[in-house]
Computed example of a mutant assay.
Amino acid sequence: MTTPNEYTRILTPEESLELLATQTFGRLVVQRTDDIDLFPLNYAVHDGKIYFRTAEGTKLFSVRLDHEVLFEADHVDHEAHEAWSVIIKGSARPLVSSAETLAAEDYGLEPWLPSFKYNFVEITPRDISGRKFRLGEEPQRY
């Protein structure tokens, strides 16, 4: 752990994954040939990997086209005056075997919308960057 200043602490990959596992809402960034998209989604962490469900559409098409993704999640605790943010660079792949899909069914990924989301996607982290912040008032400028 490095401390860039008294308000920010760099997290280890293990600490980052532990914090990710406490939340269920994150953002997925995908890239296509000449375009980038950001998708809010619910997720689960299992054995150091990120999982989400999706229907057929832009998100799944993009992951199949380019496996390299960014995933971000954060949390603000106003009572404790702290926040954290974790960014993962990794590779995403749709789960294809029935054994993988059946296992992923147990990770607690329920659709938020009343829609069918039959596709499970796994993100394997390559680089995990996390920071924890102590929140406070802006200091005097002058």
Rank of each mutant, 00 (worst) to 15 (best):
D47L: 10
Y142I: 03
E6K: 14
Q31K: 04
H78T: 11
I10F: 12
R134I: 10
S16C: 09
F116V: 14
P125W: 04
A73Y: 02
I87N: 06
F61G: 00
I50V: 15
L113T: 07
R134T: 12
A44K: 01
K117L: 11
H46M: 05
P114K: 14
E100F: 11
P125D: 05
P4M: 13
A21H: 09
E105P: 02
S98I: 09
G108T: 05
A55S: 15
R134C: 04
A73V: 03
V121N: 04
I87F: 10
L38T: 13
Q23F: 00
P94L: 11
E100S: 13
P94F: 00
S97F: 04
R32I: 01
E72C: 11
R9L: 14
F120G: 06
T12L: 05
A44Y: 00
E82G: 07
K59L: 13
H78V: 07
Q31I: 00
T8K: 03
L65G: 01
D47F: 00
E14F: 11
P139Y: 10
Q31A: 15
V76R: 05
N42C: 13
A80T: 01
L20G: 03
K117A: 11
G90A: 05
D34M: 06
P139A: 08
L65W: 12
E68I: 02
S16T: 02
Q31P: 00
Y51S: 05
Q23C: 08
D77Y: 11
N5K: 10
D35A: 09
H46K: 15
A21M: 04
G26W: 09
W112Q: 11
A44S: 13
E138F: 13
R53Y: 08
T58M: 08
E14M: 12
A83I: 06
G26E: 11
Q140E: 13
P94H: 05
R126Q: 14
Y7M: 12
P125E: 10
E6L: 06
P94V: 01
A99I: 02
E14D: 15
L38E: 02
D35H: 14
E72Y: 08
I123A: 02
E138T: 12
R141I: 12
K59F: 09
Y51R: 07
Y142T: 02
V30M: 05
P114C: 01
Y118V: 00
Q140G: 08
E100P: 11
H67G: 10
N119V: 04
L70H: 14
